[in-house]
Amino acid sequence: MISARNPMQPGGWGRALETTGAWLLALLWILPLAYAFWTAFHPPEFSTRFELLAPLTLQNFANAWAAAPFARYFINTMVLVALILAAQLVLCTLAAYAFARYNFFGRDVLFMLVLVQLMVMPDVLIVENYRSMAALDLTDTILAIGLPYMASAFGIFLLRQTFKTVPRELDDAARVEGASSLQVLWKVYVPLARPVYVAFGLVSVSHHWNNFLWPLIVTNSVNSRPLTVGLQVFSSTDQGIDWSIITAATLMTSGPLLVAFLLFQRQFVQSFMRAGIR
């Protein structure tokens, strides 16, 4: 009701000092990015020379795009991210519903076993998971990149917490109307958890868009490499050290995520916040 003035806000000189400090830190924080933008949008001879009137160009992007199969990398990453997210949404929803609303034998032990993944992430089990993928003859496929991440303990945990806050009465009311268990899940729980799904989706997409080490290990051809691995292959082997082209490629690979973030900043921050409060 009342938009209170927080009495613990600095005043006078303290305020000016803190504002200056906050801005200095912020400028320092975007400096590397600004530097990358400068280099990518100017001809190579200006990559380390800062002149106000240096001509702008998109040539670096064109060169980068032509020098490596980035279109294919983009498609691979998008397929990968969509595949993982779709699988996560389905699997985590079902599992979270079971944990939140069913009283079955071994539930609590199983839940603890799920939580183990929060500590022992697929990221560190690279040796054995590679062995498994080789045994399944899945190496160098997009499916192999995604499989270890599809049953996300984080997603199960987050959705379970959310489902537990749904009032039992809503569940009962739907059942009285004759809805089956899955209908109740679909018509009551899922719609009520929408903000959490959005939050989890954003976190998941940005995480897997950015993931690198496991895809690097399990892929070895253009057909399955995601952007991150493609960028690494490109910048370490194909290009010597033409920084203008490398920074252009770098910005290109992070571009969609960066643009999405700048457009939906508030949602991003709130989603990460929501996903963080457990």
Partner: peptide
Amino acid sequence: KLAGRGFLRMAYFTPTVLPMIAVANIWLF
């Protein structure tokens, strides 16, 4: 309630959404 709060938040948070592999390239340079 510092001036330019929205910009500050954006500046601090941006590195988080970028791929480590990409920012590593920038820092390498």
